[in-house]
Write a protein that binds this DNA or RNA. Structure first.
Length: 731
DNA sequence: GAGCACTGC
């Protein structure tokens, strides 16, 4: 045994969990479901699987542990290997997308929740496993929530299994009663934590009426400077909402401390001895790494970060938190069929999570820049789980493929609103993934294999049916990675980047944003040095590189599916640009818009929203020559913008458009009618007729319903912020 | 004429 192995073993036996090992194993053995709770630092993620392994629970199969994040799955597996003195990938391994480090002999396997969902699709009874442990359940990630419902359901009847699957659910101490109740009032096992106390202080200036970012940026800067001048040594972590605010805050902290509003009385302060570091996801990785280096002697580190620092990255030595109380969150609005990225107050539980980041190595303090009143009146207890605020099209297709036909009455820990589910069902019907009765079609079974949004998958399958997948594979890959275009902060460099991007667009031939993505993919791939090609063209190499991996994966999946006997085949006459656009229409006909007045377009999905082409599109400025378009996504800011746009012919969608309005969505949920009481049935009939009046004219459905309050409010808030910023500049 | 938080398959 090596020195590091010995020391990591010695270290791990100090963990509080070791006093409870026997009892914990007994609890797992004694019950099919178990909730295990304990704060970070209790060692539950690394130790519980080892206890179960030593107690012989691997005799009938593997122990699987799910994680919401890739890095966590990998690093925890590495750690456990070290402690057990075994080789990674043999007895202990991990599996994440693009990286399978397991073998046939692997008995403890750490996986991302998304990978586990894929495993269930291939083997619904998880016959390889004896125990599945869901970790970080309190984070309520979409996939973990789905797994929770599936494992509750499937382990009831365990066909194909000799012994029932054991399910352990691990969560922070919040809401464990709810989890236990959900799993048939199963036992709850509590492990004491090993974190240090964090003193939480309300510094008060932000009240219920302050939603303007310029206010909270100034406020966090002021508080961070207070901490720096008044508190004992120890690093600071500031939570803000996005890149712009972070850069602004860093500027203020770094060089312009005296320009802060006089009220804050900081004229005589310096920011000497303070190392200010921004941190957000789209930052280059080498710059991100800087935050892990300790500050020089006598210097205090101050990291200004997005929510990335709440769970994904852990920085040692943080003693002080400055919490803005806000987060940027993507919310799906099913009434208007749009996703809106907006700044909202965090929940109380999220605020506690942020505070906890100060108590990992010693006692800490958390400074909240909002008042107790704000805490009580503006912040919800818990963050709305992802499953209740996201598009459910993929989830519903997955459930349907697993034989869950009645997706409305699936056991959700928190039930999504019914209309979210109905919207998803309707979309799947429109893609031909399910039929009129809500049963999965042959096409739907092909679609579920792809790690893409269903509309994009549908376009890809159409291209494969026409034999032109070489055009669509790169497009699908480029659309499913982060934004590839670099936007420099400096105005001059921004112009430079813009010119080069315009040149790239022109070289693609016609005005079509999808085609430009294909062109960039191919040019970069064909170049001698792809990473420097990206640098020269102001393109994110990290994004394109991951598009290369995605493309390979999609290609492999398609290759396997095409070998099946009944892969569809069709024909289409036209140029390659027409071929590509026709395929896109099949997947994106729900995102069709027609030009109405001037530069405005009207969507044809039944909401009849007015949209504009985003200035970053190659079609911007050419609106007058356009009639029909399809778009990949929508952005709501000062206007409702569509991005990644392509002109189409009405002919290509005219037969598809009626499909947007013809269906009785309730039929698609395929409720097992015999299980339904008469009373429930009557309610459905009433709702159905209320919502979907049979005689209603299609044109009426197409009329403008763009006055939805949440969009107007979001827009008003945006304009307000903009105004305030302008005013700030003037004075 | 431009405002992209964070995950994951």
């Amino acid at each position: 045994m090596s020195k590091t192995e010995r020391s990591s073993r010695a270290e791990s036996t100090q963990l509080p969990i070791h006093q409870h090992g026997e009892k914990l194993v007994g609890a797992v053995k004694g019950s099919q479901f178990l909730v295990v709770t304990g704060e970070t630092g209790s060692g539950k993620t690394t130790q519980l699987p080892q206890f179960l392994y030593r107690a012989g629970l691997c005799r009938d199969g593997k122990i699987g542990v799910t994680q919401p994040r890739r890095v966590a799955a990998i690093t925890v597996a590495q750690r456990v290997c070290q402690e057990m003195g075994v080789r990674l990938g043999v007895e202990v391994g991990y599996q994440v997308r693009f990286d399978d480090c397991t073998s046939k002999d692997t008995l403890i396997k750490y996986v991302t929740d998304g990978c586990m969902l894929r495993e269930i699709l291939a083997d619904p009874n998880l016959t390889q496993y004896s125990v599945v442990i869901l970790d970080e359940v309190h984070e309520r990630s979409l996939n973990t929530d789905v797994l929770l419902g599936l494992l509750k359901k499937t382990s009831g009847g365990s066909r194909g299994r000799t012994v029932p699957l054991k399910v352990v659910v691990m969560s922070a101490t919040l809401q464990t009663d709810k989890l236990s109740a959900f799993l048939g009032h199963c036992p709850v096992f509590t492990i004491p934590g090993r974190t240090y106390p964090v003193k939480e202080l309300f510094c008060g200036r932000i009240g219920p009426k302050e939603m303007d970012s310029s206010v909270y940026v100034k406020e966090v800067v002021k508080v961070a400077l207070d901490v720096h001048t008044n508190e004992a040594s120890g690093d600071i972590l500031v939570f803000l909402t996005g890149q712009n605010e972070i850069e602004k805050a860093c500027d203020l902290l770094f060089e312009k401390a005296e320009s802060i509003d006089y009220r804050y009385d900081v004229h005589d302060r310096t920011v000497e001895g303070l190392l200010v570091l921004p941190l957000y996801g789209s930052m280059p990785t080498d710059q991100q790494k800087q935050i892990f280096q300790p500050a020089p002697e006598g210097v205090r580190k101050c990291v200004v970060a997005t929510n990335i620092a709440a769970t994904s990255l852990t920085i040692d030595g943080i003693k002080y938190i400055v919490d803005s109380g806000f987060v940027k969150q993507l919310n799906h609005n099913s009434r208007v069929g749009l996703d809106i990225l907006e700044v909202v107050p965090i929940s109380k539980s999220e605020a506690q999570q942020r505070a906890g980041r100060a108590g990992r190595t010693s006692a800490g303090k958390c400074f909240r820049i909002y008042s107790k009143e704000f805490w009580e009146n503006c912040m919800p207890e818990y963050t709305t789980p992802e499953i209740q605020r996201t598009s459910l099209t993929s989830v519903v297709l997955t459930l349907k493929c697993l034989g869950v036909h009645d997706v409305i009455r699936f056991p959700y820990l928190d039930r999504p609103e019914e209309r979210f589910l109905l919207t998803a069902l309707k979309q799947l019907y429109q893609y031909d993934a399910i039929d009129r009765k809500g049963n999965v079609t042959r096409l739907g079974k092909l679609m579920v294999e792809f790690p893409l949004p269903p509309g994009l998958t549908r376009a890809l399958l159409q291209s494969a049916a026409l034999g032109c997948e070489e055009l669509m594979l790169p497009v699908a890959a480029m659309l499913s990675v982060e934004n590839i275009f670099i936007r420099p902060g400096h105005p001059e460099k921004q112009k430079e980047a813009e010119i080069i991007h315009k040149e790239l667009a022109a070289s693609a031939g016609s005005s079509n944003d999808f085609l430009i993505l294909l062109c960039i993919f191919e040019k970069c791939k064909a170049s001698e040095n792809p990473s420097s090609w990206c640098k020269d063209h102001w393109i994110h190499w990290r994004a394109v590189k991951s598009a290369f991996s995605v493309e390979t994966q999609l290609r492999e999946i398609l290759f396997h599916l095409k070998r099946q006997k009944e892969f569809p085949q069709e024909t289409f006459e036209g140029s390659s640009s027409e071929l590509l656009r026709h395929c896109l229409c099949i997947g994106y006909f729900t995102n069709v818009a027609r030009r109405s007045m001037g530069k405005a377009f009207c969507t044809m999905d039944g909401h009849g929203s007015t949209v504009h082409v985003h200035p970053s599109s190659s079609l911007f400025g050419q609106e007058a020559q356009l009639d029909w378009i399809i778009f990949h996504d929508v952005l709501v800011t000062s206007r409702v913008y569509v991005r990644t746009v392509c002109p189409i012919r009405y002919d290509w969608v005219k037969d598809l458009l009626p499909k947007l309005h013809e269906i009785d969505v309730y039929e698609l949920s395929s409720v097992a009618r015999e299980e339904v009481t008469d009373e429930e049935m009557a309610q459905w009939v009433k709702k159905t007729t209320d919502q979907h009046r049979p005689g209603e004219d299609v044109s009426r459905k197409l009329e403008k319903r763009n006055d939805d309050s949440s969009i107007t409010e979001a827009r008003a808030r945006y304009l307000q912020r903009k105004q305030n910023r302008l005013r700030g500049k003037d004075s």
